[in-house]
Simulated assay, not measured.
Amino acid sequence: MTNRANVLRALAWAGFCLVASPMIGIAQEEPAMETDTLYVIDLEDGSTLYGYIISRGDDALSIRTVAGLNIELEAVLVRSTTEASGRVVDGEYWSEDPNNTRLFFAPSSRPVPNGACYVGTYMILLPFVGCGIGNRFTIAGGAPVLFGELQPFYIAPKLTLIQNESFGVAVGTIAFSNWGAGLWDEDDFETIGIAFGVATFGSDDKALTTGLGFGYAGSDFASDPVLMLGGEARLSRRVKLITENYFIPTGEAIGLVMGGVRLLASNFSGDVGMLGATGAGALACCIPVINFAYRFGGRR
């Protein structure tokens, strides 16, 4: 009798396992994601979520956050979903540097994303604006606020010839002109500027940028180049180190040295640094460098 009872219990347990195991598997299975693309989800209350879309319908949006939580949102609560340009680090979303197309002043090889634009100021008194056209061309311009006038105006087109995750090359120019009444007599003033080429080695978080430029006035070009060496290193989600340095081989070699930090937000960046100059065996220090930029459009 005992053996019969043991056999029946064993058969009952085996039957339970056969029936229950598929149910257990279903309960533990994670819902499949609609895509492995990371999104920025802006809500109507002003908050922002970062995650992957599991499913979407007319009434609801299901997402998995970067922290691994599955959330279902009513569609009326969602303002927008935008493909993210940043990445996930230890369960935390790090947005792309919104101003990674330049160091303090010098350009990197990276283009402004197609359809994106930015506005900002150099040194408080030098407002500028720039936009990306296609995936290779960036056009920027601005003018210093001097004596209540926006003169001289400058324009800075840049063409990115090569750009991948770890290397890029770009060429361009920065050209100044009074284009009307300004600080110089129109009859005497020529367009002046610098034609340059830059190469960026590394990622958005850690990179080295080198540059070579020749100054010009009208159709006359300088015989000696200006050399630039700069770098960037991201320390955290919100902080990046920036350095930008120039060597100008004139009769007496002149060097300009800049270093500081960039504070990062989703679409905003602020640079705080110091500028020093060397030449003729002397060192001049220190001029504060304060820049701001806000990017809109494109990915976040």
Results as ranks from 00 to 15, higher is better:
residue 46 G to I: 02
residue 189 F to T: 10
residue 113 P to A: 05
residue 149 E to F: 03
residue 54 I to Q: 06
residue 26 I to P: 04
residue 2 T to H: 14
residue 176 F to R: 03
residue 272 V to P: 06
residue 247 F to A: 00
residue 149 E to P: 00
residue 77 L to G: 01
residue 172 G to H: 07
residue 65 T to E: 02
residue 84 A to K: 05
residue 287 I to C: 11
residue 153 F to L: 15
residue 210 T to M: 13
residue 100 N to H: 00
residue 53 I to H: 02
residue 255 G to H: 08
residue 98 P to E: 04
residue 120 G to L: 07
residue 298 G to P: 01
residue 19 V to T: 15
residue 121 T to P: 09
residue 146 L to G: 05
residue 139 I to Y: 04
residue 27 A to L: 14
residue 168 G to I: 09
residue 274 M to T: 08
residue 239 V to F: 12
residue 3 N to P: 09
residue 112 V to C: 10
residue 81 T to H: 03
residue 18 L to A: 14
residue 3 N to H: 10
residue 287 I to H: 10
residue 276 G to Q: 06
residue 74 E to G: 15
residue 35 T to K: 13
residue 126 L to T: 13
residue 197 G to M: 14
residue 227 L to S: 02
residue 230 G to V: 00
residue 25 G to L: 13
residue 178 N to K: 11
residue 140 A to N: 04
residue 216 Y to M: 01
residue 162 I to M: 11
residue 101 T to L: 05
residue 286 C to M: 12
residue 119 V to L: 05
residue 79 R to S: 03
residue 58 D to M: 14
residue 41 I to P: 06
residue 97 D to H: 03
residue 91 G to I: 00
residue 152 P to E: 00
residue 12 A to F: 12
residue 272 V to D: 09
residue 246 Y to C: 00
residue 134 G to T: 08
residue 292 F to P: 08
residue 62 S to A: 11
residue 151 Q to M: 05
residue 179 W to S: 05
residue 20 A to C: 13
residue 168 G to D: 00
residue 182 G to H: 04
residue 245 N to T: 07
